[in-house]
């Protein structure tokens, strides 16, 4: 495709505008997190003095560090479980012929449309009876309700793009379906699995509703829910700047994943339709 120079300038300006659109709000919260004292209410984009004060505050409090540990731990476990189960399921859906495979996809779709808030209440009731309330497991299980369908979806789409001739070749060589799966398909599928893991991690990392309804102590409270527990100088003041600092900290993993795996994430979201 030939593109004129004038056209390219047009697209470059567009790209710069879009980058600004995407990062300015993030820079704002970063800037706010470096404000201290009077600067917090200076109503301008940048602080007059850059201060690490708020980061010291949030990291000095158990409240935040425990929540961060909970968030990371639970997100990783939920992601791992989802991706393992989804990989198996997605392989079966895209490769094998068995009755009910449409049902599996249908259920996955139906679950994704159900509002989380609707699941939270019954779970609260059940959890408090069986003792899962305010535990890691008590959050990981509901996380699976949306991370698993998402992973199944992304992976099923990926597996459709895999060159299956290689598997058939392996089978002709006398390998069973299971061996073919393990020796040929797994290596081919790894990039897709990886992408599914990132997208799933984002989804679980984002949780708020389950975090506020199914926890009540530091035992399992994730960061988004913990932000409401920060205290200001007095009981009536809003701890704006420390919240900003905590918000920045939990955004760092997102930015790192995005920087490292930009291409994979885009591919995952567009089902591999975009090459490059």
């Amino acid at each position: 495709m030939k593109v004129s120079r004038r056209n390219q300038i047009f697209w470059i300006v567009g790209a710069i505008l879009i980058i600004a659109y995407a990062v300015i709000p993030v820079l704002w919260i970063v800037s706010l997190s470096f404000k201290e004292g009077d600067d917090i209410t200076n109503k301008s984009f940048l602080p007059t003095v850059w201060s690490w004060e708020n980061y010291r505050t949030v990291f000095a409090s158990d409240l935040f560090t425990t929540a961060l540990r909970n968030s990371v731990g639970m997100a990783l476990i939920a992601t791992t479980i989802s991706v393992i189960l989804a990989t198996l399921a997605a392989y079966a859906i895209s490769r094998l012929d068995f009755p009910g495979k449409r049902l599996v996809l249908g259920v996955a779709l139906a679950i994704t449309v159900f509002p989380v808030i609707a699941i939270a209440t019954p779970l609260f009731n059940l959890w408090r009876t069986i003792g899962l309330y305010d535990t890691w497991l008590g959050l990981i299980i509901p996380y699976l309700s949306y991370s698993l369908p998402l992973a199944v979806y992304v992976l099923a789409a990926f597996f459709r793009e895999i060159p299956w001739e290689m598997e058939q070749a392996a089978q002709v060589d006398g390998a069973t379906a299971w061996q073919a799966f393990r020796r040929v398909i797994v290596p081919l599928a790894t990039p897709g699995v990886f992408t599914a893991a990132i997208l799933t991690f984002f989804a679980v990392w984002n949780d708020f509703v389950f975090g506020i309804t199914l926890t009540s102590s530091e035992a399992a409270r994730p960061v988004p829910a913990a932000l409401a527990f920060f205290q200001g100088a007095s009981q009536f003041s809003q701890p704006t700047a420390p919240i900003a600092a905590a918000a920045v900290v939990v955004t760092i993993p997102v930015v790192i994943l995005v920087l490292l795996f930009q291409r994979k994430i885009v591919a995952g979201l567009t089902n591999g339709a975009v090459k490059g």
């Binding site: 476990i77 003792g131 899962l132 309330y133 305010d134 535990t135 890691w136 497991l137 990981i140 035992a219």
Partner: peptide, 9 residues
């Protein structure tokens, strides 16, 4: 799972 549940209360 049971280990995780245990670290609650």
């Amino acid at each position: 799972a049971s280990g995780l549940a245990g670290c609650g209360g």
